[in-house]
Structures are given as C-alpha cells and as structure tokens.
C-alpha cells in the first residue's frame, strides 16, 4: 500500500478536524490503546491453537461479549476465520494470509 505524506493543507485541515471534535480525550486514547493491545493479544493467543469466544475471554481477561466483538471485527477484516466447533461454540483461528475476508467482489483486493 503506497503511503503518501500529508500536505501542509491536509495537516492543517486534520488539526482543525481534531479541534472541531473536541480533541482526542484521554479516554478515547485509552480506548484506542485497549483496542490495539487486545487485538494484538488475541492474535498471539490464537497463534497457539483455535479457541472459542469464552476461552478467548478468559485468556485475555475481558468479558465474553467484548471478546466476541473483537473476533467479529477481525473476522470481517480477514484477520481470523472460523475453524470448526467446540460443543456449542464455534472455534476461531488465524486466517491464512491469502484468505481475505469476504468483500463484495472476490477480485477486489485491499
């Protein structure tokens, strides 16, 4: 993915946007940090073996509904995939890199 650098105008506009939404609060920053660290930990946990949502929740010390939400998001964006079931719960595993999540068309590549 080609990364450009922001122009001066874009930087200015971005700062203005940041200001217009009242800045990035500590709470928002914490939330973002929590999101990223949880996702990272989840990836790491699933490297060992596929797991169910309650297992993920227990390992990551988060609630089961939060664990499910992360799994859902990561599944949507192709990071993990379902791989079988364990009792009443589906198992989730890391997605093989070439298996992109469903997007509209098969040939649309991120």
């Amino acid at each position: 993915m080609a990364m450009k650098t922001l122009t001066a105008e874009q930087k200015k506009a971005l700062a203005a946007l940041r200001e217009s939404i009242g800045g990035i609060s500590d709470e928002k920053r914490q939330k973002q940090k929590h999101l990223l660290t949880t996702r990272k930990a989840l990836m790491k946990f699933l490297e060992q073996q596929p797991a169910t949502v309650p297992q993920i929740a227990e390992a990551l010390q988060i609630s089961a509904d939060e664990a499910l939400w992360h799994v859902t998001g990561m599944r949507k964006y192709g990071k993990i995939a379902e791989s079988g079931e364990d009792g009443d719960y589906p198992l989730y595993a890391l997605a093989a890199l070439e298996e992109k999540a469903h997007s509209g068309s098969q040939e649309v590549k991120p």
């Binding site: 993915m1 080609a2 990364m3 450009k4 650098t5 922001l6 874009q10 930087k11 200015k12 506009a13 971005l14 203005a16 946007l17 940041r18 217009s20 939404i21 990035i24 928002k28 973002q32």
Partner: peptide
C-alpha cells in the same frame, strides 16, 4: 465518522484519488 476518528490521517495518506477532505 468524526466522532470515532482518531485523526491519525492515514486515510488521506493511502487514498489514491486524494478524496479525503478533513475540512
């Protein structure tokens, strides 16, 4: 979505058509 945006600017950096207009 401005309410949830972290204003990191990465979207503008990857947009191939420079469509992002923060202002």
């Amino acid at each position: 979505d401005a309410e949830h945006c972290a204003t990191c600017g990465v979207c503008a950096r990857v947009c191939p058509t420079d469509a992002i207009e923060f202002d």
